[in-house]
């Protein structure tokens, strides 16, 4: 049990510390593919350190909510990173929430960010918050359909059981999971404010979604938010890996497999980051009113995955 708790802490720390590295890797790949000279892979860490050293300036008339929200955001993401199996399965913390509660944790973080963006009452903050909620309310049912499909395949909504069922049972091809995987990818692009939905590097206020919400933040608050955004990308990637390619995650109580599991995680994340950068290079940001169509397609794929599972795999 003590060893379990230690590994739990180590895994969560690994996620929190490696998250900016994944962000740096994606940025680097994107720069290479676009023919620019790439920023160093450690650039996100430097940005974080710089921001932590700066003073945080808070607007007049801001309520405590504005200061409070970055901590809630970061806390939610760290909690989610603790729940998703990344290196080891069935850690002491994983029974705390199943996949549905995990979707709820993401929603909680988003609600706080949207409320904080509306707090001061600047027009860009409000605009960003409303757009974020539009994207979120379309993405959430699609994400739920995806996790329901995986739950149907494994007969449980516990992530531990899903990973156990998919990674360590006899190999089988699940067409439903292929559909759900594509749907999950689309939802992850929307939720992490990546390119067809939102441009993470934009400086044009009228097209911003996520960036418009955090315009008012500075100093350590902004650093926490940036870090939490990186952690969100990391956790979403780990969730996708746990649901669709869980091979390599160490079995319950098998500590010898853990170094290999870390290696597998790093390789899978590097490949996933490169794929993300490739897709972002080939796509342009869509107009906001095409986003419902994009996420509607994701929802449709999720429903289709469930139907195909019921028809072919029962």
């Amino acid at each position: 049990m003590t060893i379990g708790i230690l590994i739990q802490i180590a895994q969560t720390l690994l996620a929190v510390l490696l998250a900016p590295l994944l962000m740096g890797w994606v940025n680097q790949c994107r720069a290479w593919l676009q023919g620019r000279s790439a920023p160093p892979i450690l650039q996100p860490y430097r940005t974080l350190i710089k921001l932590f050293h700066k003073d945080a300036i808070v607007a007049h008339g801001a309520t405590p909510l504005l200061r409070f929200a970055p901590y809630v955001f970061f806390g939610c993401m760290a909690l989610a990173a603790g729940i998703v199996p990344m290196v080891a399965n069935d850690l002491p913390f994983s029974p705390a929430a199943d996949v549905i509660a995990l979707v709820g944790v993401f929603a909680l973080a988003r609600v706080f960010m949207a409320l904080a963006a509306m707090d001061i009452g600047t027009s860009f903050g409000t605009l960003g918050a409303r757009r974020e909620m539009l994207v979120a309310f379309l993405a959430e049912p699609a994400l739920l359909m995806v996790v329901f499909t995986a739950s149907f395949v494994a007969n449980s909504t516990q992530l531990t059981t899903i990973v156990e069922a998919l990674a360590h049972r006899a190999f089988a091809i699940y067409p439903s999971l292929a559909f759900a995987g594509v749907a999950f990818w689309m939802v992850a692009m929307a939720e992490n404010a990546r390119i067809p939905v939102d441009n993470p590097t934009t400086h044009l206020e009228l097209t911003m979604i996520h960036e418009a919400m955090i315009l008012e933040y500075s100093g350590r608050h902004l650093a926490l938010i940036e870090w939490a955004v990186a952690l969100k990308l990391f956790t979403y990637s780990a969730l996708g890996l746990a649901l669709f390619m869980p091979w390599g995650i160490a079995e319950t109580g098998n500590f010898a497999a853990m170094p290999l599991a870390v290696l597998a995680l790093l390789v899978k994340l590097a490949a996933g980051g490169f794929a993300l950068a490739t897709i972002e290079t080939f796509l342009a940001k869509w107009r906001l009113f095409r986003v419902p169509e994009f996420l509607g397609t994701a929802f449709l794929l999720g429903v289709l995955a469930m139907l195909v599972h019921l028809l072919l795999e029962v």
């Binding site: 091809i173 067409p175 292929a178 559909f179 794929l301 289709l304 195909v308």
Partner: peptide
């Protein structure tokens, strides 16, 4: 059963392409 799974996958793909054509 592996052949059957691949056939299932391909036919599911056919359905997916039918949806893609619709959109």
């Amino acid at each position: 059963s592996l052949y059957l799974q691949v056939v299932n996958l391909l036919s599911a793909l056919l359905l997916l392409i039918a949806f893609a054509m619709l959109s």
